[in-house]
């Protein structure tokens, strides 16, 4: 954000200078965005903290806010009410058959917690939280995930970058690790000796049209 504001200042100066040759390539549509306009929309926060506003919030303030604004969906302790997202726990579950991906167990960066809550929560009343409230809620969720003590106060100054699982993310490497999928001549005839059915959808019986009596049967993986 601050970068954009600087850019504006520079633009204001350069506007007085002679038109550079490259400006000839410009169509000249649109108008210059004002700093207030950029500030209103550019609310994103990056892992390195760029975009964090001034402010602070404590775990205990966060807890109070969470119980009034968030727990109806996410549960008192972030455990998720019904099918609403779980926000805490799941540590050590990522290799299991039922991984639980939460802020503490899965997310790589703290900034995402701040950014997302401020941008999109509470669900149905987005962008209603002040920076202090967002810091407090972020602090509370960190505490629920055993990342900070209960007397912790989170601010722009002490905002941590990485969450525990950060080291386990790496960039898409399909083109090297899955090289085997680039095949010259896929088999066309007698490719295997026998074919056996290993599993039927009907056994799980989660097809929408037959769901009358198994509404509460969850699929083993959801849409995310």
């Amino acid at each position: 954000m601050s970068k954009s504001a600087k850019a504006i200042a520079i633009v204001a100066l350069t506007a007085l200078m002679p038109v550079p040759a490259s400006a000839a390539d410009k169509v000249g549509l649109g108008r210059v965005a004002l700093p207030e306009e950029i500030k209103a929309w550019d609310i994103d926060v990056r892992p390195d903290g760029v975009g964090l506003p001034d402010g602070k919030g404590s775990v205990s303030d966060g807890e109070a806010l969470f119980q009034t604004k968030c727990s109806s969906c996410h549960g008192e302790f972030g455990e998720g009410a019904g099918r609403w997202p779980v926000l805490a726990g799941g540590q050590g579950s990522l290799k299991s058959d039922r991984p639980e991906k939460t802020i503490g167990s899965f997310w790589p960066y703290t900034s995402t917690v701040y950014d997302y809550i401020h941008r999109a929560m509470p669900f149905g009343e987005a962008q209603s939280l002040s920076p202090d409230e967002t810091y407090a809620l972020t602090a509370y969720l960190m505490n629920l995930n055993d990342l900070v003590p209960s007397d912790f106060v989170l601010s722009k100054e002490n905002f941590p970058k990485n969450l525990p699982n950060e080291k386990n993310f790496y960039d898409d490497d399909r083109e090297t690790t899955e090289k085997a999928f680039w095949k010259k001549d896929p088999c066309m005839a007698n490719c295997k000796e026998r074919v056996e059915i290993t599993n039927h959808a009907r056994i799980l019986d989660v097809t929408p049209d037959d769901q009358k009596d198994d509404k509460d049967q969850k699929p083993s993986a959801g849409v995310e």
Binding site: S4, A7, T14, G30, R31, E37, I38, W41
Partner: peptide
């Protein structure tokens, strides 16, 4: 809006 690391942040209407 186009903003960030640009020479000139811009705003366009749908007509633009």
């Amino acid at each position: 809006m186009i903003n960030g690391m640009v020479d000139k942040p811009l705003v366009f209407t749908m007509e633009d």
